[in-house]
Simulated scan of single mutants.
Amino acid sequence: MQTKAILSQQEVNRIIAAARSEAQQNQWAVSIAVVDDGGHPLALERLDGCAPIGAYIATEKARTSALGRRESKGYEDMVNGGRNAFLSAPLLTSLEGGVPVIIDGQVVGAIGVSGVKAEQDAQVAKAGVQSLN
Rank of each mutant, 00 (worst) to 15 (best):
Q2V: 15
K4M: 11
A5F: 14
A5G: 11
L7C: 00
L7E: 05
L7I: 06
Q9G: 15
Q10N: 09
E11Y: 08
E11G: 07
V12P: 03
N13E: 13
N13M: 07
R14K: 13
R14N: 07
I15Q: 04
I15T: 02
A18I: 01
E22L: 10
Q24I: 13
Q24E: 12
N26F: 06
N26V: 12
N26T: 10
W28K: 04
A29K: 07
V34G: 10
V34E: 13
V35I: 11
D36I: 11
D37S: 12
H40S: 09
P41L: 11
L42K: 08
A43C: 07
L44C: 10
L44A: 11
E45A: 08
E45P: 04
R46D: 13
R46C: 00
L47A: 02
D48C: 03
G49M: 03
G49C: 08
G49I: 00
A51T: 08
P52I: 06
A55G: 09
I57G: 03
T59D: 10
E60D: 07
K61P: 08
R63P: 00
G68L: 03
R70S: 13
E71I: 14
S72V: 02
K73V: 11
K73P: 10
G74P: 03
Y75A: 06
E76S: 02
D77I: 07
M78C: 12
V79N: 00
N80K: 15
G81K: 02
N84M: 15
A85Y: 13
F86V: 06
F86Y: 09
S88I: 12
A89S: 12
P90W: 04
L91W: 01
L91P: 04
L92Y: 08
S94C: 15
G97A: 01
G98V: 04
G98I: 14
G98H: 05
G98M: 06
D104A: 14
G105T: 07
V107S: 06
V107D: 03
V108E: 03
G109R: 10
G109T: 10
G109K: 01
G109Q: 05
A110E: 01
A110N: 05
I111S: 01
I111T: 10
G112E: 14
V113A: 05
G115P: 08
K117E: 13
A118G: 07
E119V: 13
D121P: 00
A122V: 15
A122E: 14
V124C: 05
A125E: 02
A127R: 02
A127E: 00
V129S: 05
V129D: 03
S131L: 05
L132D: 01
L132F: 00
N133V: 07
